[in-house]
Amino acid sequence: MSGGPSVRQRVLGWFHERPTATAWALLAPGGLFLLVFFVAPLVIMFGYSFMERGLYGGVEAGFTLEHYAAFFQPLYLTILLRTVVMAVSTTLICLALGYPVAYTIARAGRFKNALLFLVILPFWTSFLVRTFAMIFLMRDSGLINSLLVKAGLVEEGITMLYTPFAVMAGLVYGFLPFMILPIYSSLEKLDLTLLEAAEILGAPPRARFFRVVLPLSMPGVVAGSLLVFIPALGSFLSSDLLGGAKQILVGNLIQNQFTSARNWPFGSAASFVMMVLVVIAVGIYLRVRDADEAREA
């Protein structure tokens, strides 16, 4: 041990001279895990979507486009269209409700942290528990109906559960915090002197909002929309529990192919179509973000 540098010093010295090797050594465990258990399964799923259907689930070798052809039949296109409409409307409703909340939190002064905490709390809360809370309120013998009857507003309970309204309410309830948080963080960074400048130059409140605040909060709006749109597009728990069997979405269709219908290649094709929509949404997000960064620079 005496004389030359110790093993520890030699190893550290080796890494010190090779910064890229150091970085990759740190990245390797997590990176390999993600490649094997996240990326590879997606690639295999893509491959499965071109294979023949196996008799008892699974696939048989071969190459066919029939699953994609089948998906673009009117029956499934209706489901796809319903899913996209549902995801887009969820996003818009979340934006309409979430923007005022983010705006208010950003200028709430000493209540800021408390108000923010109350948005983050449901964001951390189990989606299943929150969906159950919706069922508990909306079912025929639920609290809303019992209150309505007691107040004499309706003769007997109105049906809310197992309607498109219930699914929509569940999705908005589930994803609203995803919209509020990114908008809040871009509004918080907003330079208030810009607003004062606009006011001094005579801009009325409406113009100050639409010409100054809204454009500067666009990165948050787009990020929030992406964070709501993607899970809404893939959702199946809400339609499953709140929509009954009536309002099936692409998520339910996919789940069904891997459970009772046992048509894995078709389910894979449907998943891949969903991923294409996700990639388009991410592409839009990146374009807006890059345009915004270019403008700032």
Partner: peptide, 14 residues
């Protein structure tokens, strides 16, 4: 960005 359902089925396939 990957929807949960896609994560679930692709891992099941693996």
């Amino acid at each position: 960005v990957t929807p949960e359902i896609v994560v679930g089925i692709s891992l099941l396939i693996l």
